[in-house]
Design a binder for these strands. Structure first.
Length: 156
DNA sequence: GCCAACGTTGGC
DNA sequence: GCCAACGTTGGC
């Protein structure tokens, strides 16, 4: 059982969209390191923080669960998709997705600024300068610390 | 909109 | 295989 932090721009897809949809395919990842996380380390039942990037404020907005193994991202084959990749083929797909389901939405975003102020989280990847991976591992300690911080503002 | 910090591409 | 140029991410 692993923990993750997964970024999405809320303008593109937010925790509220996921709450409405209940489940979603985490499409469009085009970074090899992130793909390898999905391929090699993500397991059904893993949990992830939903992180709003490029947002106001940016921060953790809720929790979701991984509900599939990694499988080929269909958008890489769709010529009309912004995620289309003409160097990929059905035989050798380059990019993968996982399915996620909504677990909870925080009533308030745990902002990046706030996360950075927490001593136990000072080594967390999302708090590091220049850290741009859209999916990063979260340690059990970090997960529990953030759960505690969120517990009094989490609904459902 | 700026720009730092990456990742990727491609010439050589 | 090096590395400069370019593209992208994402905080601010």
């Amino acid at each position: 059982m692993n923990y993750w932090l997964m970024k999405s721009e809320p303008e593109v897809y937010s925790i509220h969209d996921l709450e409405k949809d209940q489940a979603a395919m985490w499409e469009g990842c085009r970074n090899y390191q992130v793909r390898n996380f999905m391929r090699d380390q993500m397991k059904i039942g893993d949990q992830a923080f939903f992180y709003h990037s490029n947002a106001n404020p940016s921060g953790i907005s809720g929790i979701m669960q991984i509900v599939s193994e990694a499988y080929p991202d269909p958008t890489q084959f769709q010529e009309d998709s912004e995620y289309y990749d003409n160097k990929s083929s059905l035989d050798h797909p380059k990019w993968l997705v996982v399915d996620v389901k909504h677990v909870s939405t925080f009533q308030q975003i745990l902002s990046l600024k706030y996360l950075k102020s927490i001593d136990n989280l000072k080594d967390m990847q999302v708090n590091r300068k220049g850290q741009r991976l859209s999916i990063t591992p979260v340690t059990t300690d970090e997960w529990n610390t953030i759960l505690k911080l969120s517990s009094h503002i989490t609904n459902n």
